[in-house]
Simulated assay, not measured.
Amino acid sequence: MFRKIDETISVAPQISVEQVQQAADQGFTTIINNRPEQEEPGQPSGDAIREAARGAGLAYVAIPITPGGFTAQQVEAMQKALSEAKGPVLAFCRSGTRSTFVWALARGAAGDDPATLAEKAANAGYDISPIAPLLARR
């Protein structure tokens, strides 16, 4: 379920409250929620995930991203969350794609090579070619 991009981050589709403890057991230290509230009926609330994360000793960051695109503030918030993490991060959204995209944009803004980012994402099952023009501009 959790797809490892590299040693610092894995991504996932929507996680459940129960999976928060699984994330902690697997060594994650931070959960980043890239999903807007009530995007889909029946999804757990961000508050429920946050409380489960706190209960499991994990940091929790909410950076909701709608399917419509990314803002500079969201990319900056992702950079900050990644840089402040005390260990591996688990980021999630509906499918894991937005989490992968915003990770790639944050790492690209930090100077990582776009081709390396694309390879890491592909190894985890994600295609970041839709954001390649954004990465090329950084």
Rank of each mutant, 00 (worst) to 15 (best):
T30Y: 02
P88Q: 06
A77R: 08
S10C: 13
S16V: 11
E37H: 00
L82E: 05
I31S: 05
E7A: 15
D47Q: 14
V102N: 04
T97K: 08
G108D: 05
A109W: 01
I128H: 04
A121M: 03
E7G: 15
N34I: 03
I63A: 01
Q19S: 13
N34E: 10
R137V: 06
I32P: 07
F92V: 09
Y126A: 03
L58S: 06
P13G: 15
G96M: 13
R138H: 02
A48N: 09
G87R: 04
A48S: 11
G87N: 07
E37P: 08
A72W: 10
D25N: 10
L82F: 10
T116A: 14
D113C: 02
F28N: 04
A109C: 01
T66N: 02
E51A: 15
P88V: 00
A81K: 07
A72I: 12
E18L: 09
E40T: 09
A48G: 08
G46F: 06
I65G: 02
L134S: 14
A24E: 03
E18D: 10
A109R: 13
Q19E: 15
Q26H: 11
W103S: 06
I15G: 13
A72P: 12
P13I: 11
D113P: 03
T66K: 03
A122I: 03
A72F: 10
P133T: 10
P114D: 07
A24D: 01
V75T: 06
N33M: 00
M1P: 15
R138D: 01
R94S: 14
Y60L: 02
S129V: 09
Q73V: 02
P67G: 14
A52P: 15
I63N: 01
T66L: 07
M78K: 00
A104L: 10
L58R: 04
I131H: 08
T8G: 03
E39W: 02
G108R: 02
Q73T: 04
G69P: 00
I131S: 11
A106E: 03
E76G: 05
R107K: 14
A48M: 08
M78R: 01
A72L: 09
Q26R: 15
P114H: 04
A106M: 07
L58N: 09
D47P: 07
Q79M: 08
F28P: 03
A12H: 10
R137T: 06
T29Q: 15
G27I: 10
V17S: 04
T66E: 05
C93L: 02
W103T: 05
Y60E: 06
Q21K: 15
I65L: 04
V75K: 00
G111A: 05
P36F: 07
W103K: 06
A110N: 05
I15K: 11
L82P: 09
A12L: 08
Y60N: 02
I128V: 08
